[in-house]
Design a protein around this nucleic acid. Structure first.
Length: 354
DNA sequence: AAGTCGGGGGA
DNA sequence: TCCCCAGACTT
């Protein structure tokens, strides 16, 4: 069994790109630093198909960096309107002016100088240098994060600093294997690969040029990676459950309805409130509810809420004469519990010797 | 570390 | 509806 490797990744990706990559995007013809920069800014959090018409109109109105620097704010914003994230346009304009003021009207071919310009972060600076000059810099955008988490089997949400640090290290390791003169193609290849093959949903693993070495594919984790962003805190709900024992030591179980939480499973009689539980008890049971013993609180997490379930135990009770043992309400010997479908937290409670 | 910015597309 | 997208910046 082979582990994910950095030896072959770049070469295989480039071979795939030569045949199946995108070679006709507007900013590739011609591929000037200014046009690469503009495209990278427009493509931040924005899909290619959305960007293309904006890019065409923008470069037609502002063909060069000095043209952009000389334009009015209103003119620039008018050509950005509809793209969203308008701070990008303001930063772009400010950066153009800074380039005219400090870099002779061109984008600097220096990582730190580029990174210092407004709107250009670590990944965008690398993308510009690699694509415009074939300089050896890695990128780490959403596509690359998805590809690397899968290829190397990296768990944890990629937005976490610790995970991101790991991914940058892997991106660096891969880029070291790219042949000189192919950094621009490699950069584009990663994005094309992530956008067309290693997609978020239903990736085309059969066609993947690196599927032999992909950890996620080998371990069946393709759908699970990258780890999704943690959601908002779950709503909290409370409920009461009754652990009822008859004189024979049997437990009273109730079958859940065929839909909803724990559908058709056997659980303890349960209610949303203590008052509701008391009413049900008075209706169905012969015994003393006030004699109930509080058992340890059960906290159980569902996909859409967290349940705090308070179990109450009452011994030596019976069903009222009007209520019969039936399909939905049964006395069960402890030794027979294993034969019934019980939710995990309930099974744990009953197996605890409670 | 978390919040903010935005419109579009897919599940 | 929710989540994600060629992220960067501020608090």
């Amino acid at each position: 069994m082979k582990a994910a490797t950095t030896d072959t990744f770049a070469h295989r990706l480039l071979a795939w790109f030569d045949v199946s990559g995108r070679h006709d995007l507007p900013w590739q013809h011609p591929r000037t630093p200014y046009r690469v920069w503009l495209s990278e800014i427009m493509l931040q959090q924005t899909q290619v198909a959305t960007v293309i018409p904006y890019f065409q109109r923008f470069v037609e109105r502002f063909p060069t960096l000095p043209d952009l620097a000389a334009a009015s704010t209103d003119d620039v914003m008018a050509h950005w309107a509809g793209l969203g994230y308008y701070a990008r346009a303001r930063n772009l304009h400010a950066a153009a002016k800074a380039c005219v003021a400090h870099h002779g009207g061109e984008l600097p071919r220096d990582f730190d100088a580029l990174h210092a310009l407004p709107g250009i972060g670590r990944s965008t600076a690398g993308a510009i240098l690699a694509q415009a000059w074939d300089d050896r810099f890695p990128i780490l955008d959403g596509n690359v994060k998805r590809v690397l988490t899968r290829y190397h089997g990296i768990g944890g949400w990629p937005g976490l600093p610790a995970v991101e640090k790991q991914l940058w290290a892997l991106a660096h390791a891969h880029v070291e294997h790219v042949p000189a003169g192919r950094l621009a193609d490699y950069t584009q290849a990663q994005m094309d690969f992530g956008a067309t093959l290693c997609t978020r949903a239903r990736p085309a693993c059969v066609l993947c040029p690196v599927n032999e070495d992909c950890v996620a594919r080998r371990e069946g984790l393709t759908e699970a990676l990258p780890t999704p962003k943690p959601g908002k805190p779950l709503p909290e709900r409370e409920a009461v459950a009754l652990l009822l024992e008859n004189t024979a030591g049997e437990l009273l179980l109730q079958r859940r309805p065929p839909t909803g939480i724990w559908a058709s499973l056997w659980t303890l009689p349960q209610a949303d409130t203590d008052a509701g539980m008391r009413d049900w008890f008075a209706q169905e049971i012969a015994g003393d509810y006030d004699n109930a013993e509080e058992l340890p609180l059960i906290v159980h997490t569902f996909s859409h809420y967290r349940l705090h379930l308070q179990p109450l135990r009452v011994r030596k009770v019976a069903l009222r004469d009007t209520v019969r043992d039936n399909d939905d309400l049964r006395w069960v010997a402890r030794t027979d519990l294993a034969t019934l479908g019980l939710p995990a937290p309930i099974r744990k409670l009953l197996g605890n010797g409670s």
